[in-house]
Design a protein around this nucleic acid. Structure first.
Lengths: 340, 340
DNA sequence: TTGAAAGCGCTAACAA
DNA sequence: TTGTTAGCGCTTTCAA
């Protein structure tokens, strides 16, 4: 085939008008059986595939949703993505994914590009919760669902896990085992998960009348490297913590690497709970206790919320969906009196 | 803003013709400074964003490439994807990603959808190496680059790792340590990586005059579950293997879980090397030896090859790029006489 | 430096 | 049951 055939080519070959071809392509009925077959044959013969661009121009809808994540290499997001895709496919929606690398600038480009492409909706874990750069979406009337991180300046549906509760439970568990010198490796406090997990930590300490010690609150950036470095810092403290709570999966991995390199013995010398389950959790010795999140459900719910909005075009109130995390106690947290 | 503004709205507001607006949007010059500013102001005021659909219709290019992977949950692919995206962004290309779940049927739908959308090229790890369903792409003159798995019925550029060599080195290592009862957990033999890794295994045994024992050749499907089950089967053998080579990352994880559940002691009772590095590798005790692949480079090269083709439209000969894997020897393979 | 107008491939309203 | 035709929003040629 030389250049791509269009609907006119099909019509010519089948000896009908383009309107009739269109009817067949879109299964609208009202076409005589024989005619339809002739058209189908022509389509096959030419290898005709309709142009989404032309179609979009008429219909103003693409049946496509855009997904924006900050770091495709963080396994959390592919898992959420899988949930989104699954539901999307059921509703005959198509999904396109882009990763911002945590850069608000790239995120803005992607948003603009998604709008150009006419996505019907966007699911986003933003690199900048402030949300100014997302105003564009609002202006265009494109529904947005925020996942994992909320968006300040935008009234959008949000799917979160109860971060505070998850962190609270983890720290509570450590406290109940007798720990008092409990450190938190924080995520960025200008992100929802970073802040809320810190708040959970704080709350747990307060509820059990343990003074918050600034030396034990240490600032990471959700990256593996920073988990490593934070752990090193904690190890360098005169009075080392007896327990560590890590605010996300990547930092947990970095933390584990550091523990090993520092020969700081997990479980016996330092108890540990991390936010988010990780592959390595059950392979470590002792096995890692974690706060687990239902990634697949998060994705599914995000799509469902978005889909409702796309259907309506009207004004649903802003909805917030909060899923319960699950504390999985394995072996990496020990009674403190077993520590020495 | 009520409904999306178009180029005409901008032209009206700025009191010029749409042609002039178009010139400004596309930085074509030849517009008086003041006029340009007026137009820019109008664009900002209206929040105008040009329609990709309309643009594509005229230009027949989208500056978009499609990426198709079989399983977005396998960390290998996000890593490759990161390499692709990085290079793509440099060349101002945009990337859309879809996952087939290893279903050729879904893959076909995605391909069709990508064509409808007018992607300028496709990078694919196909769920069906036969490739009949990809003929469409060829017919439409859309360049394709195959990654990790080649495509039989299509003349396309391919980026592979030297699977056979990687497997060979792994098995050789085991042999040199004195192992003779070496098992392979195969991937599907109708896939390039599945087959080639098996061939490497076979070759190594042959070169070292070790008879291939069918009981030790066991068939998995690249999934975690199957890694688990295969390991169970091996454990059930009267004469257990003293070493296992696993053909991919997910099966390696399943295998490790099984080893633990079976209390089959890694390193001491059974040596192990896996294809593909995994997060858990360095956390296991002993640490896992693996054949590692340069995922990021694979992605980068795939995009570069594709980009060349998109530029040319002409007939480059089919190219095959084979990257060298790296055998990372850690601790999970031991001299066989240390085994007992 | 600017504008008028054709046409990209499609859908759908209207006509036959 | 089928065909004619008007746009959708844009780029680009040609003319002014």
């Amino acid at each position: 085939m030389e250049s791509k055939p269009n609907i006119q080519d099909v019509a010519n070959l089948a000896n009908v008008s383009i309107a009739t071809v269109s009817r067949v392509i879109n299964n609208q009925g009202g076409v005589r059986k024989v005619t339809e077959e002739r058209i189908l044959k022509a389509i096959k013969e030419l290898g005709y595939i309709r142009s989404a661009a032309a179609r979009t121009m008429k219909l103003k809808e693409t049946n496509t949703i855009g997904v924006i994540v900050p770091d495709i290499k963080n396994p959390f997001f592919p898992l959420v993505m899988a949930g989104i895709e699954q539901k999307a496919r059921e509703k005959e929606y198509f999904t396109i994914l882009s990763s911002t690398n945590e850069s608000p600038k790239i995120e803005e480009e992607i948003v603009k590009n998604f709008i150009e492409r006419g996505v019907d909706g966007v699911i986003i874990t933003t690199a900048n919760e402030n949300g100014d750069h997302l105003k564009l979406l609002e202006e265009q009337g494109i529904p947005v669902v925020a996942v994992d991180r909320s968006i300040k300046k935008l009234e959008v549906d949000t799917v979160l896990v109860d971060n505070k509760k998850g962190a609270y439970q983890a720290v509570q568990q450590l406290i109940l085992q007798g720990h008092e010198k409990i450190s938190i490796i924080c995520g960025p406090l200008n992100t929802t998960p970073g802040l809320e997990r810190y708040l959970g930590y704080q709350q747990a300490l307060a509820d059990y009348k343990i003074d918050l010690d600034d030396r034990y609150v240490i600032q990471g950036d959700f990256g593996e490297q920073s988990g490593y470095q934070c752990t090193e810092k904690l190890f360098g403290l005169d009075e080392k913590p007896t327990a560590i709570f890590s605010s996300n999966n990547m930092m947990t991995i970095g933390c584990m690497k550091a523990l090993e390199d520092l020969n700081w013995r997990l479980g016996s010398e330092v108890s540990f709970i991390g936010f988010d389950d990780v592959d390595i959790a059950t392979f470590l010795n002792p096995k890692l206790s974690v706060v687990a999140r239902p990634m697949n459900s998060i994705g599914e719910i995000a799509f469902l919320l978005l889909h409702e909005r796309i259907g309506l075009k009207g004004n649903l109130p802003k909805r917030e969906y909060s899923l319960a995390p699950e504390l999985k106690i394995r072996q990496s947290c020990r009674l403190v009196n077993q520590t020495f």
